[in-house]
Design a protein around this nucleic acid. Structure first.
Length: 431
RNA sequence: UCCGGUGUAGCUCAAUCGGCAGAGCGGGUGGCUGUUAACCACUAGGUUGUAGGUUCGAGUCCUACCACCGGAGCCA
């Protein structure tokens, strides 16, 4: 019995006869010699089919193999400098599992709309494959980070009865005789959970029905949201900084090949080490003024503003103490400057924009009730949330990291739509 | 939602002033023992996004609509 192996492990079998199962990634030939680039999800290897080494029938069948046909190739693993990856498979037997129809995605250029229509197939391409491997690494690293620090994973609900922040548009759905909304954040539930478990986080999909049409927005995206009881803003920032450093470090350690496929400037990622710069909103405004940007003091930063500010730094940048007026109702205000919120946004370098938003939460019942009323939010729906301030209220803080934005930054992709397997945007629900 | 742009072969694009609808890739056939997006020869492939209009004549000009792309706002 010939052992079956994955391409990633091929070096262990140098000189041995093995079977590799996969798909035809690309094919070229030279008369009596065929080169089949075989892809199995773990890597690619060149299978060399020489007419003299296989039966007439097999050679004829291989000559006409369309791209993405599925095969089991048996042969001897040989080190060869002429082969990409250093090893090739000198085939002596080929089993065609399925001969593919004309595959739409060729090794040439394609437009984004066509590729997105064929997203279910595009996932097989090298760069898309690499991005999603990095995405997996980031998820794994984030979870390892929190798990190793004794955080408890608490899943937040997807169906929610009310708006978390009340400002952005929610997807509405029929829920028996009433309305339910798809969650836009697990944060409020994490605040409740933090009072039960101390250190918690959730990781799940979130939904925003905003009519945003930019390279940084999806209608369905994933967030990792830690929340810690008795934390203040500074501790919250320390946590965010440690997490990002850990995630980037994990990707550099375990997904270097993928970063190379993506032609990512690795030096820029290697530079992501603590401490990250921390500046006040007012400092950021000053940077914008010096850069000659047209910016009204008191406003939130737009995407171009964030780019200008982040260009002054080579590491992720944390901006704190925004005007409370532009931030959500649950943000605690700075006792020293009551018009400022104890909040933090982390801006990724290289113009990738905000990847983290968070801060210390308002823990005073009366202040929170007043804030809800000012925002015209239904008190009734927030009773459970107010209970958190009624029964042993404590200072607490947390943040949310947009997974896809982090993936886009770490992978150096200009558009967020490539960082999730099947993106949902304003204009795309398929496939 | 607003501003700007693009729709031509399966894909990526060209078509001068309004005057015969083109190429590369992919597909098919044949050739080649070291290819890396191979190469060479031959070959098939079109309701020019849709509906109107102007004109002797529209891929090209006009109107509306549709689809998508880039950006803004909002946000992660």
């Amino acid at each position: 019995m010939v052992p079956q192996t994955y391409i990633a492990d091929i070096a262990e079998f140098a000189g041995k006869r093995v079977t590799v199962a996969g798909w035809v990634y690309n094919k070229t030939g030279k008369g009596k010699l065929l080169f089949i680039m075989l892809r199995d999800g773990t890597g690619t290897i060149q299978a060399v089919v020489f007419k003299g080494n296989v039966s007439e029938e097999i050679f004829a069948a291989c000559e006409n193999l369309p791209q993405e046909s599925s095969l089991r190739v048996t042969g001897t693993v040989a080190a060869d400098a002429r082969a990409k990856g250093g090893y090739e498979l000198q085939a002596d037997d080929v089993e065609i599992v399925h001969s593919a129809a004309d595959y739409p995605i060729t090794p040439k250029e394609h437009g984004i709309d066509f590729l997105m229509d064929n997203r279910h197939l595009w996932l097989r391409s090298a760069k898309q494959h690499a991005i999603l491997k990095v995405r997996h690494e980031i998820i794994k690293a984030a979870r390892n980070f929190f798990d190793s620090q004794d955080f408890t994973l608490i899943d937040a609900p997807i169906f929610t009865p009310n708006a978390c922040e009340g400002t952005t548009t929610l997807f509405e759905t029929d829920y028996f005789d009433t309305k339910a909304y798809l969650t836009q954040s697990g944060q409020l539930y994490m605040e409740a959970a933090a009072m039960a478990f101390g250190k918690v986080y959730c990781f799940g999909p979130t939904f925003r029905a905003e009519k945003s049409k930019t390279r940084r927005h999806l209608t369905e995206f994933w967030m990792i949201e830690p929340e810690v009881a008795f934390y203040d803003l500074q501790q919250d920032m320390d946590l965010a900084e440690q997490m990002v450093e850990f995630i980037v470090g994990s990707v550099l350690e375990n997904r270097r090949d993928e970063l190379e496929v993506l032609e990512r400037d690795i030096a820029k990622l290697e530079n992501v080490s603590r401490p990250f710069p921390r500046i006040l909103y007012d400092d950021a405004v000053r940077i914008l003024r010096e850069a000659g940007a047209d910016f009204k003091d008191g406003d939130d930063f737009g995407a171009p503003d964030e780019t200008i500010i982040s260009e002054k730094f080579t590491k992720p940048l944390m901006i704190t103490h925004y005007p409370a007026a532009v931030k959500a109702f649950y943000m605690k205000r700075d006792p020293q400057r009551p018009d400022r919120a104890l909040c933090v946004d982390m801006i990724a370098p290289e113009g990738y924009g905000e990847i983290i938003g968070g801060g210390q939460r308002e823990d005073d019942l009366d202040v929170l009730v007043e804030r809800l009323q000012k925002h015209n939010l239904p008190l009734q729906a927030f009773q459970w949330y107010l209970d958190i301030r009624k029964y042993g209220s404590v200072p607490h803080a947390g943040f949310g990291m947009g997974l896809e934005r982090a993936v886009a930054w770490i992978c150096g992709r200009s558009h967020i739509r490539e960082t999730i397997p099947f993106p949902r945007t304003m204009y795309r629900l398929n496939p």
